[in-house]
Design a protein around this nucleic acid. Structure first.
Length: 214
DNA sequence: TAAAGGTCGCGCCTCGAACT
DNA sequence: AGTTCGAGGCGCGACCTTTA
């Protein structure tokens, strides 16, 4: 999961790399010049404030940057060096077998390779892992060879794509449709798009897909 | 299912500092 | 003096959760 600091630093770097101040970039993108003010990155009660996806979309559009470029900026260290770290990688065909994850959804056991992912060392989420898609079952959303980076620590919300492990041993890549205290409703990613409703206690862990290499 | 209430990102505005 | 930038207060609107 991207930390709050990572996100704002990346915005600052994006602005700087295009010759703008944060307020200049906001203005260029058609946003209020104060949108990215440091004073607005924290609410009055001290809670961190996150930029909206719409604001991010606008500044990427106006700078011509892609989401991948932005991810790279998140991963850069203070010296702007190309620091690239690795996270555990496993393919989807074997990820569901026992022994590859702890009860909390953290990578464990053998069978893992390394996947280069920018700035992992500076990120607070040390339990990130990557899943390489094998087969066509997730088409058209994900193709064979795509790599999904997931965080078991990230908060999941309606509409997020998630990796789910049930206590019965099922391993699924689905979209979260609804989550209540008692039930989890999921929708399959892929051609069939089947809906699935499970008791919350049947879910061992759930990790949000935060990034995809396609 | 709909209404009520809470949360949060953003726009509008004013003000002050720094710079040209 | 004019411009740019950033801090901070306030309110709006979208979205979400809770409750009846």
């Amino acid at each position: 999961m991207f930390s709050y600091d990572d996100m704002w630093k990346a915005i600052d770097r994006l602005a700087d790399s295009h010759g703008y101040s944060p307020s200049g970039l906001a203005k260029k993108a058609g946003l209020d010049p104060t949108t990215f003010n440091k004073s607005k990155r924290m609410s009055s009660d001290g809670k961190p404030r996150w930029p909206s996806t719409e604001s991010l979309s606008k500044i990427l559009a106006v700078t011509g940057a892609t989401m991948s470029d932005f991810i790279a900026l998140i991963g850069e260290n203070e010296n702007n060096a190309a620091a690239r770290d690795t996270i555990p990688l496993i393919n989807s065909a074997i990820a569901g077998k026992n022994g590859h994850f702890t009860a909390e959804g953290h990578p464990a056991g053998n069978g893992w390779d390394d996947f280069s992912f920018p700035g992992t060392a500076s990120r607070r989420d040390e339990h990130l892992f990557a899943i390489e898609v094998i087969g066509q079952t997730l088409m058209p959303a994900y193709r064979e060879g795509d790599v999904l980076v997931a965080s078991p620590q990230a908060n999941v919300r309606r509409g997020d794509r998630v990796i789910v492990r049930t206590r019965g041993g099922d391993f699924m890549i689905h979209e979260l449709r609804r989550q209540t205290a008692s039930r989890i409703e999921l929708r399959a990613i892929g051609h069939n798009g089947d809906n699935l409703s499970l008791p919350a206690e049947d879910i061992s862990w759930m990790a949000r897909i935060i990034w995809v290499s396609q």
